[in-house]
Write a protein that binds this DNA or RNA. Structure first.
Length: 258
DNA sequence: CGATCTGTTAGTAG
DNA sequence: ACTACTAACAGATC
């Protein structure tokens, strides 16, 4: 489910299927998705071609000539392509019909996903106060986000206002690989350690994208393969423990991570 | 049946 | 004004 790597893979998949295709028809299948949109918002996108896509953190933007369609996938949102007259996939909330015979469906069983139309991506990002995308994060970002902070390193990694795109499994993965206990207060990490941590998160994101975010295809060294309570840690010395941090289940090995 | 889940945000308290 | 924590959103899965 959608953290930065998953959203990036969806973005690439969308480009592969419908970049420069014309949008012919919009079907809103779950009206809750569009309650806060302007009246007749469809007119701003229909009969235009999808000319550009962007992703910042977990947010996806599709440009239809006049305006951007913004999608956020929540916990269970996804994009599925089917032939235009095929059955809709289960949990479809929105369907976009393109003139190349493909229908792009936004599926979302838990319905935490969101959609909006925006004129400028930059103003959307500043309203949200979203941090820089993880893949573009700098050493300076790493220094600033952890320094003088009392909250846990895990909580800081999850803050989209610091760096955008890290979710629960990616945060656990980076902390495990850098041997940092997830509850470590951000401010007690050295500048160097903070930079290594953010750099690790970036590398993980790239590796996950390269594997098309199919977890089974992730390299063996990925912590995600062991990320379950009471599993043996690959270090051979400890068991994986589970705690709640920042309201999220957090898995780690207290032997490796201190 | 009850607990859990890879996200965000309104509300609350400090 | 900012920081940090919680509940809520909803349904499949174990």
């Amino acid at each position: 489910m959608p953290e930065l790597p998953e959203v990036e893979v969806m973005r690439r998949n969308i480009e592969a299927h419908v970049l420069h295709a014309g949008l012919r028809k919009v079907d809103v299948l779950d009206p809750r998705l569009t309650t806060s949109l302007p009246q007749n918002w469809e007119n701003a996108v229909v009969n235009n071609e999808l000319s550009e896509t962007r992703r910042v953190g977990k947010y996806l933007f599709l440009f239809f000539g006049k305006t951007w369609l913004h999608l956020h996938f929540g916990m269970t949102g996804s994009i599925v392509f089917v032939p235009t007259n095929d059955h809709l996939p289960k949990y479809s909330r929105l369907a976009l019909d393109f003139d190349n015979g493909l229908r792009m469906c936004f599926t979302d069983p838990r319905t935490f996903g969101k959609m909006d139309v925006v004129n400028r991506v930059e103003s959307f990002l500043s309203t949200k106060k979203l941090g820089r995308d993880l893949l573009d994060a700098t050493e300076d970002d790493a220094k600033k986000m952890f320094v003088n902070r009392k909250i846990s390193a895990k909580a800081i990694l999850l803050k989209q206002k610091e760096v955008a795109g890290i979710g629960n499994w990616l945060a656990d993965e980076a902390l495990f690989r850098q041997k940092i206990h997830p509850a470590t207060p951000g401010g007690s990490l050295s500048e160097r350690k903070a930079q290594h941590l953010l750099d690790e998160a970036k590398r993980i994101a790239v590796e996950a994208i390269d594997a098309d975010t199919h977890y089974g295809d992730f390299p063996d060294h990925f912590f995600v393969h062991h990320r379950k309570e009471n599993n043996d840690c690959p270090c051979g010395m400890g068991k994986i423990e589970k705690v709640q941090l920042a309201g999220r289940s957090t898995y780690f090995c207290s032997t490796c991570q201190s």
